[in-house]
Amino acid sequence: MNAAFVILRRELHLALRGSGDSATTVLFFILAAILFPFGVGPEASILARIGAGVIWVVALLAAMLSLERMFLTDYEDGSLELLTLAPLPLELVVLAKIAAHWITTGLPLIVATPLLAILFGLPPQAFPILLLTMLIGTPTLSLLGCIGAALTLGARRGGVLIALLVLPLYIPVLIFGVGAIDAAVTGLPVRPHLLILASLLVVALPLCPWAAAAALRQALD
């Protein structure tokens, strides 16, 4: 367990040293979202209606940006091979990397979300639910994305390929994330959506590191 924290610290350290990353992700998140008022027009009622969906879709895309580099640098300089030889199970190493990815992308996105919610004029009762869905949903994005990152190691056009593999898997998270917010706005029960969102996370938490570790072993064979 201690070793997992060492690896988590190493990952965070590396991520923070190249600290531009988190800032770039957040900037992309905000920039891509404010394209929509230009695209669909500044009418407040329309923006409030589509705001939750736009924020979630752009969050999916932003969470995907830094996936490619999740394992790539370690793969290229050979440290990934060392990590597989470590006494720690590869699944835990992968979990540490996922945690680092979430802390450096998912968390900043959540912090930036209220700003976008204000810009889109979302109804106040949607704010806490929006943040809650992001809090439950973004770890699932990191977990699922990790599989895509592991599968495309060493592929030609890896970045585009990750999008092709990961976006279909992201759709359930998007559906129930936005569903919860829409339910909150229209006064319907929010709980079922949140429960499904949480169960997605609970299912992905053991399965994704396992699948990604299997993919990594294949890549290093």
């Binding site: 599989i147 060493g154 390929l161």
Partner: peptide, 14 residues
């Protein structure tokens, strides 16, 4: 997507 077809087959299998 891989130069080595067996690597592509394994990734696709996962």
């Amino acid at each position: 997507a891989f130069d080595d077809p067996t690597r592509g087959a394994k990734a696709a299998a996962v």
